[in-house]
Computed example of a mutant assay.
Amino acid sequence: MPPNASLQFDIPPEFAGRRVDQALAQLMPDYSRTRIKDWIEAGRVTLDGRVPRPRDSVTGGEAVSVRPLVAVIHEDRAQAIALDIRHEDDSLLVLNKPAGLVVHPAAGNPEGTLLNALLHHAPDLATLPRAGIVHRLDKDTSGLMVVAKTPGAHQALVAALAAREVSREYLALVQGELIAGGTVEEPIARHPRDRKRMGVVPGGKPAISHYRVIERFVGHTLVRVALETGRTHQIRVHMSHIRHPIVGDPVYGGRLRLPPGSDEALTNTMRGFRRQALHATRLALAHPVSGEHLVWDAEPPDDMTTLLAALREHVRGRGD
Rank of each mutant, 00 (worst) to 15 (best):
P52H: 09
K205F: 04
R231T: 04
L95M: 10
M28E: 09
H210G: 10
R316I: 06
R255W: 00
R282L: 12
G254Q: 08
A280K: 05
T127M: 11
F15S: 09
R193N: 01
L278W: 01
L144S: 05
A25P: 04
T305H: 08
P301G: 15
L47T: 10
P54F: 12
M145H: 05
A5R: 10
R236P: 00
G108N: 09
V247P: 03
T269C: 15
N4I: 04
I242P: 00
L69V: 15
A63W: 08
A148T: 07
G291V: 13
E88H: 08
A226T: 13
A117I: 07
K97W: 08
M145D: 03
I85N: 09
D38Q: 15
V247Q: 06
L222V: 07
L92G: 05
L283P: 01
L256V: 14
Y170G: 01
A156Y: 01
L157W: 04
P250W: 02
A265E: 14
I235N: 00
K97I: 08
L24D: 01
R197L: 05
P68N: 12
L285G: 02
R257H: 11
K196A: 08
H104G: 08
Q155D: 04
L27T: 10
H191N: 11
S167R: 14
A42E: 14
A80R: 14
V213T: 08
V66P: 00
I73G: 05
P123Q: 12
S290I: 07
G230V: 09
T269P: 02
G17R: 11
L95A: 06
G203L: 14
D249G: 04
L227N: 01
L294H: 00
L125Q: 08
R312M: 11
T46G: 07
L137A: 06
R86S: 10
P3E: 08
A82L: 13
R257W: 05
K196E: 01
I85P: 03
V103K: 07
L92C: 12
E292I: 09
P129E: 06
S240V: 01
V166W: 07
K139F: 11
V174H: 03
R44P: 02
E111W: 03
G291A: 13
V166G: 03
E111Q: 12
L92P: 01
R257G: 02
A280L: 05
G112P: 05
E264K: 14
N116G: 06
L119F: 03
A298P: 00
L119M: 10
G182D: 02
V289Q: 13
L128F: 12
D124T: 13
Q175P: 01
W296F: 15
R53D: 14
G49F: 13
G181D: 06
L7F: 11
E299G: 05
P29G: 14
V70Y: 02
L285H: 01
E264V: 13
L24M: 11
D249P: 00
P202W: 01
G248W: 01
V58K: 09
A107L: 11
R274K: 15
A160Y: 03
G254E: 06
W296Q: 08
I214A: 14
Q22I: 11
A265K: 12
D263H: 13
S57E: 15
H135M: 10
L128W: 10
H154G: 09
G291F: 11
